[in-house]
Design a protein around this nucleic acid. Sequence first.
DNA 1: CTAGGGTTAG
Length: 238
Amino acid sequence: MWEAKLEPNVISYSAGISACEKGEQWQRALALLSEMWEAKLEPDVISYSAGISACENGEQWQRALALLSEMWEAKLEPDVISYTAGISACAKVEQWQPALALLSEMWEAKLEPDVISYSAGISACEKGEQWQRALALLSEMWEAKLEPNVISYSAGISACAKCEQWQWALALLSEMWEAKLEPDVISYNAGISACAKCEQWQRALALLSELREAKLESNAASYSPAIVALLRRRDATG
DNA sequence: CTAGGGTTAG
């Protein structure tokens, strides 16, 4: 654009930053942010949030946090989306403590985290194998009148699955029905995975049937854990 | 008109 004597604006730069998604492109994203300052095109909240997401994809969680600080310094108040992107950046690399710290920081900054922020936090707990904390976040959402949705619950069930807490995974599935939230394939698959990991193969198969009865389209992730559980049982029983 | 955030297996 510069070469064509067309001056890019803040939106063009933000789009460019957002395009720096894969692999090592986070460096390019950060370079674009600096370039904006040099060109006196002040990056806005969206440009920075896109930069934070680029850091997430590049697994650069500290740099994501650094961008959030930089925003405060530049008097560009990060919004709910900027923070949520930061939480995801931490989640991606299993940094559940900084992810939860960001959630608290949001409340302190009077930036009310929304359902997406909490779901990202639950996902961070899942990656960091903190199932109790994932459950705590779900309760916290209800208390804050932020109704968890199917995605929040699926993330919670995954956290239970990862930590081999099949009873809690099933409890969350029931809780969804009580809350009139219909579990989707992802919720079921996470539940099947939890049961399968704990050698609860009958329960895994029961969930698989439920999934089919609900006319939800099963996929490879629905069957793999159940098959693994059955194979383990076969090996165990000879 | 054109830009930013959350869920599943192994």
